[in-house]
């Protein structure tokens, strides 16, 4: 029987589940609009409506994340010291690409005071504090295109805004693929998924 630690309170699980569902909807409808053609799986108009609504809900959900991280100690897990960061990232990367296969112990095991390893801290922090805000801001600007500067440095404002939006959306999508895969690296293949439902992390 694996040792269990309670890492994920209800509000985090709710935020995370909603975020995951909305991200999936946004990716499917976003791709559907980007590669829009007659006979597409999801129609353009439906994609626009679902994408807009999901984007607004995701933005509100992001507020929950920000407020939650401010009033609870969850925000602490996203902070990392710059000093020695590169070494820590390489150490964790080395474990994932070598030590893990040899059965070595994780260099930064998860516990109550360290919910994320250095690679998780860096990627989660980059996604949640850079990519997501950018995708939200550019998305809201796209909702009200009349507010966009018509031209910027010879390029169309809408085009530039959408470029930021789809680039960030793409990074988030790739992150999602890697994130889901890495979640299978737990005590068992599904233990990390279970922990995001019941809140209890099974120590690997």
């Amino acid at each position: 029987m694996a040792q269990k630690i309670f890492l994920y309170p209800a509000w985090i699980r709710f935020w995370h589940l909603l975020n995951a569902l909305l991200c999936l909807l946004l990716i499917v409808t976003g791709l559907s609009m980007h590669y829009s053609n007659p006979g597409a799986l999801v129609g353009f108009r439906v994609s626009v409506q679902v994408h807009n609504l999901s984007g607004i809900i995701l933005s509100l959900n992001y507020l929950i994340f920000l407020v939650g991280n401010t009033i609870t100690n969850n925000g602490v897990f996203y902070r990392f010291a710059l000093k020695g960061m590169i070494d820590r990232l390489f150490k964790q990367f080395g474990y994932y690409t070598g030590g893990l296969f040899k059965g070595e112990k994780a260099p930064f095991p998860i516990n109550e005071s360290r919910k994320f390893n250095p690679l998780q801290q860096f990627t989660y922090g980059s996604i949640m504090y850079m990519a997501v805000p950018l995708v939200i801001i550019s998305g809201f600007i796209m909702l009200y295109p009349e507010l966009i500067l018509p031209h910027f440095k010879g390029l169309i404002g809408v085009f530039l805004t959408d470029l930021i939006h789809i680039t960030m959306g793409f990074f988030i999508s790739v992150f999602l693929i890697i994130h889901v895969y890495f979640c299978t690296i737990g005590h068992t293949t599904i233990s990390n998924f279970k922990s995001m439902i019941n809140g209890w992390h099974e120590v690997h």
Partner: peptide, 10 residues
């Protein structure tokens, strides 16, 4: 009235 007639590669 079909968005995709403008919003598509073609």
């Amino acid at each position: 009235k079909n968005c995709v007639q403008c919003h598509s590669s073609n």
